[in-house]
Design a protein around this nucleic acid. Structure first.
Lengths: 340, 340
DNA sequence: ATCTTCATTGTTATCGATACCATCCGGCTG
DNA sequence: CAGCCGGATGGTATCGATAACAATGAAGAT
């Protein structure tokens, strides 16, 4: 234990061993400035001999540059966001950037705290999940930031410097169109935590208003306090079918909830899609794994992440990126809605 | 853009505005030392007026302490690890620690790079996923670290300062016992990427050796290059049933692959569990969501994360934690294996 | 009235790097 | 041969905080 607390090797130690100044050693190890090949060798050798590990706290403080990128997403355990994250990582990691992940759990307070802590580390860039309530404190932190900020997941509103995501309104309309084309009229929506997830809410509202344009009322069964998981989908579907036995089609907040719903429908002897059609959202690998291939909206999650990351890199290299990138959306027809 | 590059407010600015020394301001904002209430007020007011955001790079450099914890897991997009991560976060976040996440993708090279970069940030602690190949460079980096390190996911071997995980050997034995109790004799294993995921491999080997003790040969169908997902499970199950049509039971690497397998069996008209029994691994929410409740091994993933995080906190506060924590395992009987 | 004493506040050095600029020196130009 | 040039190197200040200790001053003790 005592041994572990020993002072780590510093650049100065390396320089001394190589018989050069710290400045020279610094340049060699960063690959900056012009240094003779002989000196480079010496320094590199010394660094290796001593097992030198640079201290990037010191480096970043001094140069006022860092290779850390802060990312705030609602939930790590939700496949949807973790896949966006994978996309981000796949671009940033190979370029030597570290991503710093914060989990807001859809809570604006937590998000504000995270933002404060992360900005304290003076990251090179900021990736934020869109579609959340944002506290005034958070807004003011964002204004004071001195790094590019990119908005993920939501491209309906262009906030910050760049947005990469999908149009949740379009997604809602796509579902409406899908149902209408199939002459389904008695339609329901099942969701959860809509008070906090503004993106999901926007999909819901878009579906609702598209239906209302055809004089159709959308039945909604949502629970703010239950998790957005299969079990919740199951429970809410049961509740829906009891109160509205004549329903013909259900759109779920996500695929997991849709699967839960399917499982209830099956047990209740309700046939899909003959009696009830089901549409999920996300196009997760689940959707195809089950016996009944779920009709859902495919979202290119990895791509959203990688596009956002690339935009960030461009901004860091000085190019003035601006605007937004909108992911292409499509209905992936499974066999939980009738084919036409 | 120009505006964003302005110098941020420093502690000195705050101190000047409050009419005190930087040291005093520092103490107030950290809540250290003894400072009069009047001065505290002044400093806090000044900090708020200016929108002061501490620079933790400078703070950590100076105090040689940080509140960053580095975590390296194989994959963020895999629910299994992301749930462990959520457990970690749930403990560390409320205590003001930042987790720094690296994704190794089961690649030792990547892991080594990550380790180097993360240690460069001088984290307060290190959480590593067990059961991976580790390069010699990585080993030497680990030896030179000056922070506590904790092993996640694997508790068969106690490495580093503490391990929190499960016994993969026990898991393998549990599955063997489950099959044997049900008089299943023609048994197969389906997995992927076993060359890199040593934990999964250990489960497989434990199953194999437990069966061999009863003179039973385990049939194995594994593919190193395919992802450990539903689709792979489906494909490999098809392959298995073609070559070994007489098989009675299959254990899959994880629940997702098991679901893929179930979906194939169903389509091929093979009845579960009458003709073939299926056991997954993990106890993910999927397992219960589908019509056929999957028999699987329940692993308390969140708890593994939170136990590890608590152990880390204890070590940071000076208590000499040592040893390991082993997660309780149990077979969750679904209806993909016969009841007894 | 003088000396402690303790709470409060300030001074200086340092953490480990990089930025910026000065210096050195061998070779080339005129 | 002086003067200039540019590649190679080093010196010093600085980044923005904290550690360690010194200094201040008012209250209480003798």
């Amino acid at each position: 234990m005592e041994e572990k607390r020993r002072r780590l090797v510093t650049l100065r130690d390396v320089a001394q061993r190589a018989g050069v100044s710290t400045m020279t050693a610094s340049k060699v190890l960063r690959g900056a400035g012009s240094i003779s090949e002989k000196t480079r060798q010496k320094v590199r050798q010394a660094a290796e001999d001593l097992g030198y590990l640079p201290n990037s706290l010191a480096g970043s403080l001094s140069s006022r540059k860092s290779r850390m990128v802060a990312v705030i997403i609602p939930s790590i355990a939700d496949v949807v966001f973790s896949e966006v994250l994978s996309g981000v990582n796949s671009v940033l990691r190979p370029r030597g950037f570290q991503t710093f992940i914060g989990e807001s759990l859809f809570d604006p307070e937590v998000e504000t705290d995270l933002l404060r802590e992360m900005l304290s580390l003076r990251p090179a860039g900021l990736l934020l999940n869109g579609g959340m309530m944002r506290s005034p404190d958070a807004e003011s932190l964002l204004e004071r930031r001195n790094c590019p900020a990119i908005h993920l997941w939501d491209s309906d509103h262009a906030e910050h410097d760049f947005s990469a995501g999908l149009s949740h309104e379009e997604a809602g309309r796509l579902v409406a169109a899908h149902f209408l084309e199939r002459n389904l009229r008695r339609i329901a929506y099942i969701g959860a935590e809509l008070d906090r997830d503004l993106c999901a809410r926007r999909r819901y509202l878009a579906l609702q208003s598209a239906l209302r344009a055809r004089a159709i009322d959308l039945v909604s069964v949502a629970c703010e306090s239950m998790p957005r998981q299969a079990e919740t989908g199951r429970v809410l579907t049961e509740k829906l079918m009891e109160t509205h036995p004549q329903i013909e089609a259900i759109h779920f907040l996500n695929d997991a909830m849709a699967l839960g719903g399917l499982s209830y429908l099956h047990e209740a002897g309700i046939r899909v899609p003959e009696n009830v059609s089901v549409v999920g959202f996300n196009g997760t690998s689940l959707a195809n794994a089950v016996r009944t291939r779920l009709t859902t909206i495919d979202v290119p999650r990895m791509e959203i992440g990688s596009v956002a990351a690339r935009a960030l890199l461009q901004m860091l290299s000085g190019e003035l990126v601006d605007g937004r990138w909108q992911a292409p959306l499509r209905v992936a027809q499974g066999n939980t809605t009738p084919k036409i």
